[in-house]
Design a binder for these strands. Sequence first.
DNA 1: AATGAATGAGTGTTCATTCAT
DNA 2: CATGAATGAACACTCATTCAT
Lengths: 208, 208, 208, 208
Amino acid sequence: MAQTATTKRKRRAAGTGYSPEVTRRALIDSAVSLFGEQGYAATSVQEITDAAGVTKGAFYHHFEHKEDLLRLIHDDFVDYYLSAMEDVVARYPKPDEQLAELIKAFVPIVESYQASLRVFLQEQRYLTGARFAAVKAKRDRFDELWQDVLNRGIEQGLFRDDLDPRVVGLGIIGMLSWIQTWYRPGGRYTAEEVGRILGTLVLDGLKV
Amino acid sequence: MAQTATTKRKRRAAGTGYSPEVTRRALIDSAVSLFGEQGYAATSVQEITDAAGVTKGAFYHHFEHKEDLLRLIHDDFVDYYLSAMEDVVARYPKPDEQLAELIKAFVPIVESYQASLRVFLQEQRYLTGARFAAVKAKRDRFDELWQDVLNRGIEQGLFRDDLDPRVVGLGIIGMLSWIQTWYRPGGRYTAEEVGRILGTLVLDGLKV
Amino acid sequence: MAQTATTKRKRRAAGTGYSPEVTRRALIDSAVSLFGEQGYAATSVQEITDAAGVTKGAFYHHFEHKEDLLRLIHDDFVDYYLSAMEDVVARYPKPDEQLAELIKAFVPIVESYQASLRVFLQEQRYLTGARFAAVKAKRDRFDELWQDVLNRGIEQGLFRDDLDPRVVGLGIIGMLSWIQTWYRPGGRYTAEEVGRILGTLVLDGLKV
Amino acid sequence: MAQTATTKRKRRAAGTGYSPEVTRRALIDSAVSLFGEQGYAATSVQEITDAAGVTKGAFYHHFEHKEDLLRLIHDDFVDYYLSAMEDVVARYPKPDEQLAELIKAFVPIVESYQASLRVFLQEQRYLTGARFAAVKAKRDRFDELWQDVLNRGIEQGLFRDDLDPRVVGLGIIGMLSWIQTWYRPGGRYTAEEVGRILGTLVLDGLKV
DNA sequence: AATGAATGAGTGTTCATTCAT
DNA sequence: CATGAATGAACACTCATTCAT
């Protein structure tokens, strides 16, 4: 999970021997930001390689299909995000704290991995067949994680039980996913503020 | 706003004389469902005309550019949805009722206009230049509408004032927008149920 | 079956409106001679359209796949050749005459349809799936026709019966197919001469 | 002339130190069968190296160009076949016996070197420039050999003199070359049977 | 109003070949 | 001797759009 090269035209000075890892990373980084900006379907392999300062041949040396790149970006992000969530859950024992912290922890992710997140949220549809299946499983674990927290909160009497936790979970995920459409780093709100507001709204809404 | 032609292959039997309006509608309907399923960038004009049972020439008789169709779909939907919201606001005097009813009213829209809504939410990015500007204005009015309701609620002492209404409004919009990614008509939950759960969550979260 | 345009570069003067049939024919003719000269796999669609004085887009307006062209050429030739053979068989009542005339009739075909014949004989392998199956059936009828003549000759006591007619038939077909590798119109031998020599060889070899 | 590796995927287990000769042979063998199956133009260097269990770099260590491999296969086969023919001619003193034995000797070659023979017969066209010239000379000697036998037979009054030996020779070569298109080892006919039938046909057709 | 032929730029992908290691 | 990264040109095919009819 890295996504730094937002604009990195024309690397590779004459005679320089870069390592394959560098090429690979440059391709992935370029793809992340282009897919994020323009969408997967509207981004050509040519654009990706131009942005990475590499030829199309190099692309197909590293990846078999354009779709493989998409899958990789998805996978990387979901792995990163899942482990970040699991860390939060592990750090706090009580479901209400977990819920509040999970929400708070999300906003900085929007900030740091904006492009990856957009790809993850909006370009999933272009994964086909086996590539889709592979990613689907991980996305499902992601949904479950939220519901587990909500379920435990209900069991422990911390959250009201008249609101189906599945629907509530999907509501929270939607609220958070939407953030990347409007949040601008350095804009009117800080990440903490957004986290506090949405966290309070949900926590108080769930109070018994 | 019409979106009936979910599956309408091969109309126009030999010798039938359809009116231009019918051709136009068929093209729009086909585009709505194809853009909804596959996305704007991944849908070709050919696919649209095939689905409408019409030739490519006919398409360019009715529309100058593929993007015009997208704009039209956006515009139609946003007009429809804005007026639906305004109806709700007009019908209920109190902000808390308005908020609850706006949320409730949304889910049936997801149900009936799934494809249009997806296009509206996900394909906006492909509108460029003047076409984007034209649509942007209407989308902004849409956001304002939510915030007006929230602001009035705070002024009238119905909603707490420690949660910025702009952020809360965007949170609600996100929650609702996300519904189309998981809601299946005839599935586990009815539209009313989803409306009640999310409405309650938000209303109680906002309570003073 | 037409194959006249051996070299026809740059048709289509400015402002001229050619009919689609002309474009189609130009493409087919160009393909026949290029496939004949260089082989199917070594000929690009670009080369075909260049030779036909047409853009690549025009090619794909008329044909869905490069392979479709190959199939069409095969089909056209086999139809033409089968009917030419059947004419010969119909015109002569006796199997020995039929055999002699079938052999004689072949050499002028080599002369007139050299490229088509080469494609037919050497490029069949590039037909895949359904396209192969469609052509295979006709090629089989072609083999049968020879064997029918030989079988009838044996039954009528005109040909010896100690040489399996299937093997003999394939021997004759091989002899004839090979002609296009060495025969040059206007060269050392006339078509009649070649027909007489090979016909005599076979007829006398089959005599009881 | 060796052509054993009909199916030899993934040799070279980890840690094994093969000799360069083995690599070279593996490449040639893979090329023979792939060229035979798919044709030269439709076979990529990648496919050859994959089948040989070797990297592309290794290929270009042993051969300068893909075409060199084709030339080598041609050369190997023609050398092998010429010497086989010369052996037969040396072993039998009389032209009629020579002719019969040359035909008989051909069928087992079809059987054992099917792929090589196909490459030799069908892929010659892809040899260009100097590589073509080098091979052409040997192919011509091959044709001459047949004609020498026929000429001597006519001189000795064993074969009729009203059938041009050049044309007859090419007829025989065609008959034999065609065998590989239909002969299947273990099929309806044995190699001896085919040799006998075609030999008898020709010999009796040439009888004075 | 609508067709169907055509364009020309662009798509994702594969190719034979080179070369630093 | 062999690898694996990289190139650059070419591949079959698709695209949005134009236009004569």
